[in-house]
Write a protein that binds this DNA or RNA. Structure first.
Lengths: 233, 233
DNA sequence: CGCCCTGTTGATACGATTCAAATATCGTGG
DNA sequence: CCACGATATTTGAATCGTATCAACAGGGCG
């Protein structure tokens, strides 16, 4: 169990017009006239791993664009057990439920150092009513979130533990420009895949011994991608 | 394996103004002026179990409101294996991806006799641009679909096989007005829960022997709800 | 230096799958 | 209406995979 309690840092005001992830950002389609409508500046925030961004049940006041990093979405069952339902990363939008509900559905916690833009829900609601392109972009985000969820079910919750671990590694590599990726604790690895910490650890160790991956420094994984893919057949 | 090949039946033209599921239907918020904009009549369709409504990759020309019945959403993995990712039933909307994409993401097949209203995507797009309430309703549907997907992960893909079966039975009972529910093949039961047909069958048989459920006629299950719930702790 | 936390490894138990066979059910045509 | 074959379900025994419980190694930090 982690017990990080450092608070998030405010790092400045975003200039959406020149945003680095603008091409893939929610506000990609906005014109000058729209930006005029964003009366309040957009805050940028940085969260270290382990610091909750929001929790299930909190009043849903904002959506967040992930500029950088990786977060886990946790869902709680009636009986108190928890399960990581999805991971989200750069260019993903979290807290979409703010558009239709009063409260957040998940607890969201960064696994890597994470930078966010905070989009107040009133702003997004106002803009989406006047701007058809943003409306369409929002639906595309819902669609993507749903596709991610379905993919989570089929790729990360189905099949033998070995396959699940490999599929997750390959998913992490997707956004990397070489064969390395940053991992996180074995405990989180297990929670994402519906496995125990020990099983997650065992499989990672076994993949290492068999030469499919190596771990030059803790939680930095170097993958033999082609051979890993072959293992999935 | 089933090999049903009967074709769907067209059963009439829906009158959305007096629709039985109107209160919970997509067009709930429409006024007279909006109905004027639906130039083409809305078709009602009936599908027997096993007849695909649409398949993954098909051009996405319409959304469907489920008036009655139960369908499975199937997703295919690169390696050809398939998994049922979600079930949808009365008052649910399927094919939402038609709003943002060219093709359907899943293959959708009824498990029970199913009645649908076919909503051409142009109609929904046109109406949603002029009608803020429909726009909001659409987002609420995306939200519900996503919540269903998350629930699928935590309740039906996590934990021991016994728990999964029970959670599915309780889910089926939710929309029933007594303690009975209609089931479907053990093969589908397994596919939904990520289990083999044999395991699904074994657990059903065991629950029967222990008196938690009974099957007065094939695929009609009578559940001792309170005691089943107790088994989940 | 010693403690705590994370990761690793081992032994064992349990649960689910697999393969195989018997039984029940459904649909069809005689 | 019954008989038949095809299909679905149930059951059994052996095997495999994962969880569980427990012990130990290493690193970071007070």
């Amino acid at each position: 169990m982690k017990s990080v309690s450092r608070t998030e840092a405010w790092t400045g005001i975003a200039d959406c017009r020149t945003c680095a992830v603008r091409a893939s950002a929610l506000f990609a389609g906005l014109g000058e006239a729209d930006f005029e409508l964003i009366h309040r500046p957009i805050d940028q925030l940085v969260y270290p791993p382990g610091t909750p961004i929001y929790s299930a049940g909190d009043p849903a006041a904002a959506l967040f664009t992930i500029r950088k990093g990786l977060v886990k979405l946790i869902q709680y069952l009636p009986d108190g057990t928890q399960r990581i339902v999805r991971l989200m990363r750069r260019a993903d939008l979290i807290g979409l439920e703010a558009m239709v509900g009063e409260t957040y559905q998940h607890t969201v916690v960064p696994l890597h150092p994470t930078e966010l833009c905070r989009l107040p829900v009133e702003v997004v609601k106002r803009l989406s009513q006047s701007n058809p392109q943003l409306f369409h972009e929002l639906m595309a985000r819902w669609h993507r979130a749903l596709a991610d969820a379905d993919r989570s079910i089929t790729e990360l919750s189905t099949g033998p533990a070995r396959h699940r671990v490999i599929r997750l590694l390959l998913w992490l590599i997707e956004t990397s420009d070489d064969d390395r990726c940053d991992l996180f604790s074995r405990e989180d690895l297990g929670a994402i895949l519906g496995l125990t910490t020990e099983t997650a650890s065992r499989i990672m160790a076994e993949l290492k011994r068999q030469g499919y991956i190596s771990e030059p420094r803790p939680n930095q994984i170097l993958c033999d991608v082609p051979n890993l893919k072959r293992l999935l057949d």
